[in-house]
């Protein structure tokens, strides 16, 4: 059941990398309006940027015509960002946590974005539904 004081904001953009700035502004504005503190806002923005970059690159394989939808929800002491797309899904269990010192030293690519999301947020959940939607749920305590 939804909490009576729940506030939600919604945005849908095409999967063009040019839209990353629009997504960041959307999150910043929604977070400001709901009183989320600046430190937390920066973390959420960075996590959402990493998620969006992954969707554009991997789910839509750099096709700028896909759609990505965002819901920014503040309920009680928690902020949730739900990101959905209809691109190619992936198995999050297959994304191994990078050994950062080795990762950095060897200049490896991939996996860093998901790892960052997990550091920045309190909870990261991903599911690919049978109806062809991928849904990423990022949650962060804001109080």
């Amino acid at each position: 059941m939804k909490e009576a004081n729940e506030i939600s904001y919604h945005l849908t953009v095409k999967s063009s990398t040019e839209n990353l700035a629009i997504v960041r502004d959307f999150i910043r504005k929604a977070a400001d309006e709901t009183g989320v503190n600046t430190e937390v806002v920066h973390k959420i923005i960075l996590a959402v940027d990493e998620a969006s970059s992954n969707i554009m690159r991997h789910a839509y394989k750099n096709n700028p015509e896909g759609e990505i939808s965002y819901s920014f929800i503040v309920s009680g002491s928690e902020c949730t960002v739900i990101i959905t797309d209809q691109g190619v899904g992936f198995n999050p269990a297959a994304v191994r946590k990078p050994d950062l010192p080795v990762y950095i030293k060897e200049g490896k690519r991939g996996g860093l974005g998901m790892h960052l999301m997990k550091i920045l947020m309190d909870n990261v959940q991903y599911e690919s539904t049978e109806s062809g939607f991928n849904k990423l749920v990022l949650t962060k305590k804001i109080a």
């Binding site: 990493e50 970059s53 690519r109």
Partner: peptide, 11 residues
């Protein structure tokens, strides 16, 4: 603003 993409460029 810098994301992990930027870190890779610097690296």
């Amino acid at each position: 603003f810098i994301s992990s993409a930027g870190l890779r460029v610097f690296m």
